[in-house]
Design a protein around this nucleic acid. Structure first.
Lengths: 250, 250
DNA sequence: TCAATAGTGTCTGTTAGACAGTATCGC
DNA sequence: GCGATACTGTCTAACAGACACTATTGA
């Protein structure tokens, strides 16, 4: 049998049904706090529970495309603002009993977004909201989404160390202080302003000067700060390491 | 409708058929060279082509379990030797046209193994072999497996920097020189023996002394080396950074 | 004896981090 | 003026990398 005959005779339904979803851990910074996009499920199962935005991958779309589409549907975002959102694959979750309906493998994605407008509830969702990550401890999430969120947060913290993705939380032009705010928010530690400043400027390709400065000083005083935009580096050398990981890694 | 009624009425076949496979990028070191486990496909599609070991995930097994099972089937490995193989998820690949049969999402895994015996051809495979990574350039791989292998190799190189997984390529007891050989093989650079030695011993939890030494010196002379086993660290602090990444990252 | 390796000591350039100091702003 | 911030200078401890040296082994 040649390949053509083989394909003609092939029955896709001969195998047990599996479904694949693209779910998104979408992070943004609002009011100086890290926020996660959650939806309240309107349909079974876990109706009424908070969950990650996501849904079944369509037959003609790539996994990342599916994740972007789901994100767009939940946030009402499109065009240039959506293009500025960074989306990458996080990991896949496929425990046999993770969904009571059937075998569902979730390909989770991680998204970094600048401060976005409040989301509008989409098709399957009763509600959608940016939820402060600090409040997650007191909420119950559907499926194994707690685990996915934890993995996503850890990935985000790690990615800030060796990639310039912190700039994806900011508008196209930003100050070094703004950038430091992103690191402090995601890592949860205050950083030394002077050392951070020098370090950022010393990493080639991390930021590039716009030649301009802010119109006004900070809200609490201080000189006008110079404005920068993201540079062309895709990895930071040397990396900005998180302080004091301690020996907890062992 | 409550959740129970909903589930009873749920039809898993109402959605377009998707299949999920677990594929494995299995690496080992033989004769001082990095090798990859490949099989020659005996069935359509891509019959006769070399491909990664893998197959459909069974209804009752987790993704990682499926990857381990496929690896065991191809290598004939089991029991304690199989337990010593490190398997982790790499990434998922789901381009709509990556498999001509139907929509197949491959959850790729990465495996680090000590020197293993030659594999035996399994059920679907005409042949199976450890192939030197250096020879991959001249071989054509099925599906998008070239891309998966490239991603796996880059992940492996990066993982050696900040995890103690290099020890997974070695027997339970090894010398610092053995460990250096792993790094040199995977990274493709010679390392400074003296500095490497001191660095490894300075990282807490990377290796621990067995109190014993090798019975004989090296095959080309030299004193007997002290033996170590893997320590309890899961991350290396500080990391062993690759030398000279240059500015290629930009 | 010779070549190769294990393991240690030492030096230097670089860097992270602490601290200080000046200039500029909002209030 | 006062407090806060932007940005720069300086010092120190830690570290990577280069080099050197001794001791021990196989051939």
């Amino acid at each position: 049998m040649n390949e053509q005959d083989f394909l003609a005779a092939y029955d896709p339904n001969a195998y047990p049904a599996v479904a694949v979803t693209a779910d998104v851990v979408a992070l943004t910074i609002r009011d100086g706090a890290l926020h996660l996009l959650l939806i309240r499920r309107g349909a079974q199962p876990y109706a009424g529970h908070w969950a990650l935005p996501g849904g079944f991958v369509r037959p003609d779309e790539d996994l990342a495309t599916g994740a972007r589409r789901e994100l767009a549907e939940e946030t009402g975002l499109g065009g240039e603002p959506l293009r500025r959102v960074h989306v990458e694959q996080l990991a896949s979750y496929g425990a046999p009993d993770r969904d009571p309906r059937m075998r569902i493998v979730s390909v989770a994605h991680l998204a970094f977004a600048p401060d976005l407008p409040d989301p509008a509830a989409g098709t399957d969702a009763e509600a959608a909201a940016w939820v402060p990550v600090a409040e997650l401890a007191s909420r119950q999430l559907a499926f194994d989404h707690r685990r996915i969120v934890d993995d996503g947060l850890e990935r985000a913290r790690a990615k800030l160390e060796y990639t310039p993705l912190a700039t994806r939380f900011l508008p196209p032009e930003f100050t070094i202080g703004d950038l430091r705010g992103v690191y402090e928010t995601v890592w949860g530690h205050p950083l030394h302003p002077g050392n951070f400043h020098r370090k950022v400027l010393s990493v080639p390709g991390f930021v590039e000067s716009t030649g301009t400065s802010t119109e006004r000083g900070g809200s609490r005083g201080g000189p006008r700060a110079r404005l920068y935009r993201a540079g062309d580096a895709r990895l930071l050398h040397p990396a900005l390491l998180r302080p004091a990981k301690e020996e907890t890694a062992r």
